[in-house]
Design a protein around this nucleic acid. Structure first.
Length: 476
DNA sequence: TGAAATGTTGGGGCG
DNA sequence: ACGCCCCAACATTTC
């Protein structure tokens, strides 16, 4: 590799030193390497509120990164401004020969990186991008006809067939840290300077940074073999809870895939499958950036949604009268997280019971989810709305009561997030409106006062959905 | 990574 | 004893 005098690593959603592709490439090819992070006003200004767990998480992870770099005599350079301007400015100021980044597949990020690349080129500086966020990207897994897959299971088989340890080998960044540029202490902007306030991050037990990720991973490794049996029950500690960290790269995807692939249990296999879904949706977004605005299956852009703002507000605020749905939405509000089973149930409910455009729900999740990721969120919503790639058939509809009985049989999850139903018996907690007058008195519930009546009748809503989607289908 | 509607079967109550 | 009916339980089809 051609030796460069110096380079800058621009960290974005890869807030770690360990097994970081761009950092590794920079360290290996350059004599002096700086690391920087930009709090990008273009992104911050688009956030819905001045309290945002993600901003706080990023800042705390940056503090940890700064400490880790300090241990090697360097520091994290933290800028605050428009990334399009800050990065070229910083690169010029440092006089580096190249800027290293990891590929970001979101259309807006692709456009931003192209702008930065052009600005750098004018300065005679190279922008070099590496694959880091996924195992196989873009066109690395294609059908026999060299076309992108449109069906997940076929994609997964091809993905697994390609997978050899080479693809999840960690980049040995640690061996090359001597190339980090010496730096003296520099201040990280406080949250307030970024225009944000503290959130409940630590109160809900979320630890940022690589150390936070390691703690979750260690805990999950004790449970991974039973992931398959436990993952569907929101009251049970089944999932890894690593999504926040995966989103911001405080842990590397290769690390996780290595752990899953080299374990033979059904639990590990099932979990690996989820990681493959992630690659799948990044791939879809790469080939079909229009999905950010449109249904993957264009004919479904014609769906005549009802889009009742009252219904949408009730859904957002967890007062639909369907306890499991409300519990999910309130967990989202309280913690910025929702169990995956609930993401499917609440998404299905918004689209197929309330007949609200999936994009409304997608936007709400984007604003609320700590682990929000455009590719996965869009893919998940289009799957649930039956408008997507390899989506569930539109007549496959969740019954919010049946789902509740199956996956929260004792109502433990419901009671945690919908405390007004705490005293309702197990047999009624999934559908409290079916209680008799006496039973309502006994559980201290007046429907419509303490807890809402169901805002729609599921059986009726189901018929409407069949009619709504059927209309599209016959036209196509 | 559903659920509802419809069809089939077989055991038991009962005339 | 026998056939009829009811209806769970399970299977299949349909949305």
């Amino acid at each position: 590799m051609q030796q460069l005098p110096s380079a800058l690593v621009w960290l974005r959603r890869d807030l770690r030193l360990h097994d970081n592709a761009a950092l590794y490439a920079a360290l290996k090819s350059s004599r002096r390497v700086w690391c920087a992070f930009v709090f990008d006003r273009e992104i911050l200004d688009a956030l819905p509120a001045r309290r945002d767990r993600r901003v706080e998480f990023i800042r705390e992870s940056a503090v940890e990164l700064n400490d880790a770099l300090a241990a090697h005599g360097s520091r994290l350079i933290v800028c605050h401004g428009r990334a399009r301007e800050e990065v070229p400015r910083l690169a010029a100021q440092l006089g580096v020969a190249a800027v290293f980044v990891n590929h970001d597949y979101e259309p807006a990020a692709v456009a931003r990186d192209a702008t930065v690349g052009r600005a750098l080129a004018v300065l005679g500086i190279d922008l070099r991008s590496r694959k880091d966020h996924v195992i196989f990207e873009k066109d690395e897994v294609l059908t026999a006809e060299r076309k992108p897959y449109a069906v997940f299971s076929a994609y997964r088989d091809a993905w697994l067939k390609r997978l050899v340890p080479f693809f999840y080998q960690a980049y040995p960044v640690e061996k090359y840290l001597a190339a980090l540029a010496p730096m003296s202490a520099c201040a990280l902007p406080p949250l307030a300077d970024l225009g944000f306030e503290r959130t409940n991050l630590d109160r809900i037990g979320i630890a940022a940074g690589a150390r936070g990720a390691e703690r979750l991973l260690a805990d999950f490794l004790g449970r991974i073999d039973s992931y398959r049996e436990r993952r569907d029950f929101p009251a049970v500690r089944g999932p890894s809870y690593l999504s926040f960290h995966v989103r911001f790269g405080t842990i590397s995807i290769r690390r996780l895939v290595a752990l899953a692939a080299e374990r033979s249990s059904e639990g590990a296999r099932t979990w690996l499958n989820e990681l493959i879904w992630r690659d799948f949706f990044f791939m879809i977004l790469h080939f079909h950036p229009r999905v950010t605005e449109h249904a993957f299956r264009p004919e479904y852009d014609a769906l005549a949604y009802r889009n009742d703002p009252e219904h949408f507000a009730a859904w957002c605020e967890g007062r639909t009268g369907y306890p499991l749905v409300d519990a999910g939405m309130r967990q989202l509000d309280a913690a910025g997280y929702m169990h995956n089973r609930l993401r499917m149930v609440t998404a299905s409910f918004l689209v197929k019971d309330l007949h609200v455009d999936w994009r409304w729900g997608e936007r709400h999740f984007a604003q609320q989810l700590n682990d929000y990721d455009l590719a996965a969120n869009n893919g998940g919503w289009q799957w649930a709305a039956s408008t997507g790639c390899d989506a569930q058939p539109y007549f496959r509809m969740f019954n919010p009561v049946t789902q509740s009985e199956k996956f929260d049989p004792t109502g433990a999850y419901i009671r945690r997030y919908v405390p007004e139903l705490a005293r309702v018996l197990n047999e009624h907690i999934h559908a409290p409106w079916r209680m008799s007058e006496g039973q309502r008195r006994q559980s201290g519930i007046v429907l419509g006062e303490h807890y809402p009546e169901p805002i729609v009748d599921h059986a009726q809503a189901r018929q409407i959905t069949l009619e709504l989607y059927g209309r599209v289908k016959t036209r196509a």
